[in-house]
Structures are given as C-alpha cells and as structure tokens.
C-alpha cells in the first residue's frame, strides 16, 4: 500500500508531466494559484489523469471540495484504503 508521502510524490510526477513544468514542487498547501498552468481549463484533464493513474473515481462534489493538494491527497489516500 502507498504511503501518504508516496502519493504526494506520484502527484508531483503527474503535475510535472501534465503541465510540462519540471520546476513544480507540491506540498499540501499548494493551490492552483501557485501553479501557472493549473486553471479551470486544465483542471478536468488533470483530475482525469489522476483518476486513471490511481484507478479511482471522484464525484463532482469531491472535486468541488478540493481546495488544495492536501485535500486531494487525503481523498486519494481514503480511496486507496
């Protein structure tokens, strides 16, 4: 089973690939404001990639509730249990 740290690491890899930006460093407080290419246009594609990578599925309400990377990591951790 993945640890919370591993999930963050994998998320960072996804973000770097999705946004073609090797300088991205994620922490739980990271939000769309911190990452130039992360906006409403790219968000759904990012969510889709994350869902496929971890083989999970988010509801719309869950996606609405994500305010930062920490929320995302918590939701992924809960779904992988």
């Amino acid at each position: 089973m993945r640890t919370s740290e591993q999930i963050l690491e994998e998320l960072q890899g996804i973000f770097i690939k999705e946004f073609s930006d090797s300088s991205i460093v994620l922490n739980d407080q990271s939000t769309a404001k911190d990452i130039a290419m992360w906006d409403s246009l790219t968000h759904m594609g990012l969510m889709d990639t994350i869902e496929r990578h971890f083989e999970i599925s988010f509801s719309l309400d869950e996606m609405i509730s994500f305010k930062n990377v920490g929320d995302l990591r918590t939701a992924i951790t809960a779904k992988l249990k």
Partner: peptide, 12 residues
Amino acid sequence: KPGRMKFLEIIQ
C-alpha cells in the same frame, strides 16, 4: 479570482 476552478464553481 485567478486560480479557481471556474467550471466546478459554476455547478456549485
């Protein structure tokens, strides 16, 4: 505000 997920916020 920038950095917000507009489409999701519309539904919300």
